[in-house]
Simulated assay, not measured.
Amino acid sequence: MKKHALQLIMVFGVATLLTACDKKESNKKVRGDWRSKDSSTSLKITDKKFIMDGDVQNAEDYFTKGDTIFTSFEGNQPYTKFVIQKLDEQRMNLLYPDSVAVEFIR
Score class of each variant (00 low, 15 high):
residue 88 D to H: 05
residue 50 F to G: 00
residue 24 K to C: 00
residue 78 P to E: 01
residue 76 N to H: 15
residue 100 V to Y: 13
residue 37 K to A: 10
residue 74 E to S: 13
residue 59 A to F: 02
residue 40 S to M: 10
residue 61 D to G: 04
residue 30 V to W: 03
residue 105 I to V: 14
residue 74 E to I: 14
residue 29 K to T: 08
residue 77 Q to R: 09
residue 38 D to M: 03
residue 55 D to C: 09
residue 104 F to T: 09
residue 88 D to I: 05
residue 69 I to V: 05
residue 10 M to D: 12
residue 28 K to F: 12
residue 77 Q to H: 12
residue 84 I to N: 02
residue 102 V to S: 05
residue 41 T to G: 05
residue 82 F to E: 03
residue 71 T to Q: 05
residue 67 D to Y: 07
residue 22 D to V: 09
residue 23 K to I: 09
residue 97 P to V: 03
residue 2 K to A: 07
residue 58 N to S: 11
residue 44 K to D: 09
residue 13 G to H: 11
residue 84 I to A: 01
residue 40 S to L: 13
residue 15 A to H: 07
residue 95 L to Q: 06
residue 85 Q to G: 10
residue 82 F to D: 02
residue 80 T to I: 05
residue 22 D to N: 15
residue 26 S to P: 14
residue 86 K to E: 14
residue 16 T to P: 12
residue 61 D to M: 06
residue 62 Y to L: 04
residue 67 D to H: 07
residue 91 R to S: 13
residue 92 M to P: 01
residue 66 G to N: 00
residue 50 F to I: 05
residue 105 I to R: 09
residue 26 S to I: 08
residue 69 I to T: 00
residue 94 L to A: 00
residue 91 R to P: 12
residue 6 L to C: 13
residue 97 P to M: 02
residue 82 F to N: 01
residue 20 A to L: 10
residue 95 L to W: 06
residue 70 F to W: 04
residue 43 L to K: 00
residue 40 S to K: 10
residue 92 M to W: 01
residue 80 T to R: 07
residue 102 V to N: 05
residue 5 A to L: 15
